[in-house]
Every structure is written in structure tokens, then in C-alpha cells.
Simulated scan of single mutants.
Amino acid sequence: MLQTIKKSLVIGTVASLGLAGCATSTLMKKETGTYTSTSRINLVEDTVIAFGKPAQALPNLPIDSVVIAGGKNSYILTQGGGQFVRLITKLDPKNIQINKDLTFNSALNDGNFTGTLPLTYVKLQQDISKKDLEFFIQNGAEECTTSSDKRMDAQRFCFNIPLAGVVYPVANNMSTLQSSMQPLSKPYRVSIYTTESQTHSRQTAKGGLQKLVLFPFAVAIDVITLPFQAAQKIFE
């Protein structure tokens, strides 16, 4: 009978952790009456206004940095931006698809973030040249043709571009960007999250959500959208 009760307790504990999902996991310390929880905390959710580059050189940042201008912040890519520009300028933008939102991780919530840009390129097989294939190989593409693509005699290539960057304030010329640029036909979102481990007693309540921390000494900048206008067509 005692063994049955123990099994029930174990099953109940596992089930409760499963229901909690990936957002929060909990480990109870029976001896001290405390528990440690690891939570995924969303620091910011934003919408892309434009892709571009800084209007002026920024200290301590690469000269080829790319800016994702959002409505709340500017997300300056210090790694991976060059490859992103290379892809959208060399490939036909009408064949490029970005089907997932950008999700970045700021491990320390210190203004730095990392993530991956998932981008696919699909084209009729008869139109794919040797030069195209060489470009795909040079840029780390993986062949990811779906059954639907095959039925249409098309071939698909997937790029997962590793990104890293820093968070700056919203662009100085945001109103100009919004008025001069054709908005993306589909809303494209950017989010940044972090994870946090906390030890609580049974009486301790969880704290509120953290706010996103900007990169130290970051100041608002102007953003130039050219020559990245091709990015607009990706979302059509």
C-alpha cells in the first residue's frame, strides 16, 4: 500500500511539471521547504518598421552593422547582418520567405542578444543554375525541399543565419521612416526573452516581469533604409 502511494506521488509530481510547460520549471527542496524555479521571461515584443543601416558610424560596432528598426527599440545586428544583406540583394526577393518571427535571447539582459534568422528560398528546378548552387553552398544553405515543392517541380533551400546584436533606443527618424516607406504587407515581430532562476520559500511571491535593458551608452540614431528596400518584398 505504501509503495502504491509513493508511485502516485511521483506520477503526480511529474504530471504537474509537464503541465507547467517550457515557460517555468520547478525543483522542490524538501529539506528546506524552498523551491527553485527557472522561468522564461519575455522582455519585449516589438514590430519591425524597416530594415536598414545606421546613418553614421557607431563607436565599437562593425561598420557593416544592420539595423532592425522597431517601434519600441532599434536592434543593431553586429553579427550576421552582412550575410542577411548579401542574401536579400543577390537573391530574387520574391522567392525569399521568412515564415517565423525573430526571437532573440538576452542571457544576461545587458543589452546584448543572440538568435537565428530562418530564411528560405524556393525556385523552379529548371531555373536553378550552377551559379545559384555555388552561392547557396558559399552561404551555408541546406536543401529542404518539401513534398509540395516537389509536386510543383520546385526546390527549396534553407538558411539559418546566426545573429548577434545590441539594443539601442528607437530611431531618431522613426516618423520619417514610417511616412516614407511602404509598410510591410505582413506584420513582422521581434521579441527578446531571458531566463531567470529564483529560490523561493512557500510564502515568497514571484516578482514582476523584468524590463529590457539597453546596451550601455546606447543613444538614439538615424536609420538609412537604402539599399535594403528589397526586404519589403519578402513579406508580400
Score class of each variant (00 low, 15 high):
L212Q: 10
A231R: 00
I221D: 04
P118S: 14
Y121N: 02
T225V: 12
R156K: 15
P227S: 08
T146I: 07
Q3R: 13
E196R: 14
P216Q: 13
N105P: 00
E134M: 12
P187L: 11
G18P: 00
G111A: 02
K72V: 08
A141I: 05
G21E: 07
N160M: 09
T78N: 07
V190R: 02
A231Y: 05
I98Y: 01
S129D: 06
D64W: 01
S147I: 07
G33A: 08
L102H: 03
G208M: 09
C158H: 09
S16P: 04
Q126V: 08
P62N: 03
L119V: 15
T194D: 04
F84D: 01
G81K: 03
K211Q: 15
G81A: 06
F215K: 13
L212S: 11
T145D: 11
P169D: 11
N99G: 10
S25I: 08
G70F: 07
L9E: 05
F135K: 07
T38F: 04
K123E: 11
T145C: 09
V166T: 10
Q229C: 01
V10C: 05
Q125D: 10
I68P: 02
G70M: 01
Q56V: 12
P162Y: 05
L9C: 06
T145P: 08
L77P: 05
L87V: 06
P54Q: 07
V190Q: 04
Q97S: 14
I68N: 02
I96K: 05
Q126C: 01
Q210Y: 05
N60Q: 06
G21F: 09
E143Y: 01
L17I: 03
P187M: 09
A50V: 01
D222T: 10
R202C: 07
G165I: 08
S201W: 01
G80P: 04
I98H: 00
Y121E: 04
Q210C: 01
Q198F: 02
V167N: 07
L77E: 06
L117A: 14
I98T: 03
S8L: 15
L177E: 06
G21T: 11
Q198T: 12
S147D: 15
L87Y: 01
A231N: 07
Y168H: 11
Y188D: 01
A20E: 08
F159L: 08
E142P: 00
Q138L: 12
V219R: 14
S148Q: 13
K100R: 11
M174L: 15
S148E: 14
G208D: 11
K29M: 10
K72I: 09
L124S: 14
T26K: 13
E45H: 02
S179Y: 02
K94Y: 05
Q83H: 00
F228N: 14
V166R: 15
V67Q: 01
S106I: 06
L61T: 03
V166E: 11
L27F: 07
V85H: 00
Q56M: 03
S16I: 11
F159Y: 13
K233A: 12
D46F: 04
Q56K: 11
N60S: 10
S25V: 08
I88H: 06
Q229R: 06
P54D: 04
S185V: 06
S197E: 13
L58K: 04
Q126T: 13
E31G: 02
F159W: 06
F113C: 05
G70L: 09
L133D: 02
F84N: 01
V48D: 00
V219P: 00
I76C: 08
S25R: 13
T78P: 03
G21Q: 12
V219D: 11
Q229M: 09
S201N: 14
G12C: 12
